[in-house]
Design a protein around this nucleic acid. Structure first.
Lengths: 146, 146
DNA sequence: TATTACTTTATAATGTTTATAATTAGTGTA
DNA sequence: TACACTAATTATAAACATTATAAAGTAATA
């Protein structure tokens, strides 16, 4: 299936970049790909506690940083205390529920004109942008109605 | 001038909302409006050290939260460790230099279509969105060239 | 196998932000 | 203006996420 294919591709990327594939890295990647959510470092740590009772939180953070540097993972910083991590697939944005924190992927063509205008007005050499959309998810909207 | 007018308006907002106007609050607001940068809580704390030698960091944080709740101030969370705070004027985005961290305001009409599409696709009741543009500022680009 | 470099672990340290309790100071009313 | 009430400030400690460090372990290479 598609998921294991993504994992294999990710492992290939690590190999090509000369990053060792350790059991911990394998498990973290696997969890990131399988979980359709956008977990925090602590989520990952807790989820893998069973498989790796001795794993250190530092290992999770270290490897998330490695994955980010290699371009496999994106770090999302919202208002709340901890970062969330997202396995990069295709270009998409996130829609975030302000009530329950749920994050839903939202595909949309890149906002190239915005980048171009920004570059023109500010003189910056623009590399990329980020955008998030906030609102209330259907579940919470229903709960609110009662 | 326009700045003191903004301050007066902000103080009026506080009055209307029943938020007491203390010297500390006055000073924090004034600093936020005058500083064309986007300071962290600690920046503000340090900047007002001279005027208020006994002010607590907690006061800065508390009041930034109050201002945010009242709608005077926006909290910006980027990848780095601490939040930045921005006095709300008109609707604009930020262009951020990845080398030196400089933040430049960038005016652009709201991305209404994006919100509408997101709402349609995900079923969310959308309230707002955020977007930042990343790149290299002219100063850093020159430094890099050498 | 020996060497080397990289990873993990355990732990401590850092830095930001929040909570608590006691003191102080604004604000509305007499 | 003075009083009483309530909110805000201060000082401090605590919580929390994240990073740094050093020692031990593991994989890769010759």
């Amino acid at each position: 299936m598609a998921v294991s294919h993504q994992l294999k591709e990710a492992l290939d990327t690590l190999k090509e970049t000369g990053v060792r594939i350790t059991p911990q890295r394998h498990a973290i990647l696997e969890y990131l790909i399988n979980s359709m959510s956008h977990p925090t470092a602590d989520d990952i740590y807790k989820a893998l506690e069973g498989k790796f009772p001795n794993m250190s939180v530092a290992t999770v953070y270290n490897n998330l940083r490695v994955f980010r540097e290699v371009g496999l993972v994106k770090e999302l910083t919202y208002g709340d205390s901890s970062s969330r991590f997202d396995f990069i697939t295709t270009h998409h944005y996130h829609v975030i529920c302000e009530k329950c924190g749920k994050i839903v992927d939202f595909h949309y063509p890149g906002l190239d004109e915005v980048e171009q205008l920004a570059s023109h007005v500010t003189g910056f050499k623009v590399s990329h942008h980020r955008m998030e959309i906030y609102g209330t998810c259907p579940d919470c909207a229903i709960k609110e109605a009662h």
